[in-house]
Design a protein around this nucleic acid. Structure first.
Lengths: 311, 311
DNA sequence: TTACTTTACGCGAAGCGTAACAATT
DNA sequence: AATTGTTACGCTTCGCGTAAAGTAA
């Protein structure tokens, strides 16, 4: 029973159709049919229910898919290591980060990675914190930059690169305090925040609990922070964000940002790598490069709101 | 890059020679050579140092072997699941146990497994407790019967089948106490025991510590317990074993066995399965069968020194 | 010399694509 | 009718084994 049979099977099960799998695999549908037919003959059971609309896994098929998935993953890793050997260094580098971080430093990072590893395929992905840890765990990304909500760092194998102060974001039309505000003062404001399970919302909730207040959430706004920014610009309320997220709007006078005081208003940016998986070739080099890039950005004043003192 | 390439590579690296790998793989040496040569070409580096005596991994080869090993393991599991599907039940059953347990009940177990799963390949392996947990973790065995030293059960996903009392084993020439002895009394005896890291030795050490005594170990005897038995027969000292290990010699008057009193002199026999790995087809059935076999042996009085009361 | 790996060569089989067919919606 | 899966057929290619050559101990 050849390993490629499991790969074909995996593709068909995932796409739910022979024709879709065939284009993904770059071969003719008839070939895929033959492979599936042979696998079913070898296994002695039907792995799919056939219908005019596609292929649906049977119970036995679902069982075998578990194993097929592992085979595909393992093979992919092995091939990648071989490719790394051939390239004399990493042949593929995948870095992910949360949107704000992407905005600030992924241009510089992509540039640094490309010039350091010209022969490697460099991929950058944007995702939520939850997605990032999941991707790390699955080995889909090599390194990730993410916010750790408060002082709860050390949960994963991450190195704290810097601490970024959070700001209260006001509409341009509303008079904002001239200097930094305290956390309790921020909690008095009508806020536009993401719904639960988002890092910033969880942080705000923990502030409210600690100071014995309740949040005045006038609007829940999920998705990209640009939507939240537009809501604040429209004067519906204030929000809490790092300065980097709104630097441009602040510069153009569309929004006002006031720093929130105190250590609880600091979010750590950590550089995380997968601990459970074997490190990719040159991962240590890569993390060094990413770290240096971040520090250079901060030193050049290109990370709004962050300097060496806060970091 | 085909998965079979990794399998061939794995075989060559493991055996250290193309010719040995070729017989293991059931093919001609020239074929294996071609596969390795192509893999090296794809990887762009030499994976082996060639010498007139065989093949030795390079650094790059060692790196790739890590991945190749995972590929081989994963593929093996996937093929097995497929074979289970084809057989309509488990196609292979691997059960392991510590030597004494093997001696007492593996004949009955092998018989029960063969009659329950006539189409399956049944394998039984004997090994030390340390090896057993390692094999379970690696997925090399489906179920294992092993002794848990004292009352520290529950560490792994194991079910306690019974508790077996330990005995003091005396030479035939030496007058032995007529009835059960206490743990402190046993600790006074000159003992022949395995060296550290063996379960029985660790148990004896813990007794000594708890009763504030020190062991009088006249001889350390590693390997099979039959060596220990011969040493006791020769009159060099006493030892501590379950009755099942020495039943035959006791019956022939070559040794004397005296039960040790108290709950601390009981060893639990646990039926363990791998928790970290997906269960094999019908594993639940198999464990049921093994459990019933043990209980039937005990009820029939075929497990020396154990009855329903101690169990 | 001996044991092992590698190359050359010819053959056979396995797998692919094209194209026609069948079945479900 | 349209989309999708399956079967038939001819062909190419890939990989195996045999046999000879090369190479280190």
């Amino acid at each position: 029973m050849d390993a490629s049979a499991f790969e074909y099977f995996h593709a068909v099960a995932r796409t739910g159709s022979i024709s879709r799998a065939s284009v993904e695999l770059g071969m003719e549908p008839s070939t895929v049919t033959r492979h599936i037919a042979r696998l079913e003959q070898d296994a002695g059971v039907k792995l799919f229910h056939r219908s005019g609309r596609g292929m649906l896994l049977t119970d036995a098929g679902a069982l075998l898919l578990q194993e097929a998935g592992k085979v595909v993953d393992t093979l992919q890793h092995a091939r990648r290591v071989a490719a790394d050997l051939a390239a004399g260094g990493p042949s593929q580098i995948v870095v992910a980060a949360q949107p704000t971080i992407v905005k600030v430093c992924f241009a510089a990072m992509a540039h640094a990675l490309r010039s350091r590893y010209p022969r490697a395929r460099v991929r950058v992905i944007e995702g939520s914190a939850h997605e990032l840890v999941s991707w790390l765990h699955q080995g889909k990304v090599d390194a990730a930059l993410l916010y750790v909500p408060h002082l709860a760092q050390g949960h994963a194998g991450g190195e704290v690169l810097l601490r970024e102060p959070l700001h209260c974001i006001f509409p341009a039309v509303q008079p904002a305090p001239p200097g930094p505000v305290t956390v309790p003062a921020a909690l008095e404001l009508p806020l536009i925040l993401p719904s639960t399970s988002h890092g910033l919302r969880a942080l705000a909730e923990s502030w409210a609990q600690r100071h014995g207040k309740s949040l005045d959430v006038v609007l829940e706004c999920d998705g990209s922070t640009s939507m939240t920014r537009r809501m604040v610009q429209a004067g519906l309320g204030c929000t809490i964000l790092p300065l980097a997220s709104v630097e441009e709007e602040v510069g153009r006078g569309l929004l006002q940002a006031v720093r929130i005081e105190g250590p609880e208003a600091l979010r750590s940016v950590v550089l995380a790598t997968a601990q459970n998986r074997p490190p990719v070739t040159g991962l240590l080099d890569i993390t060094h490069l990413l770290r240096d890039t971040v520090f250079q950005l901060v030193d050049a004043g290109r990370w709004p709101g962050v300097d060496r003192r806060t970091a």
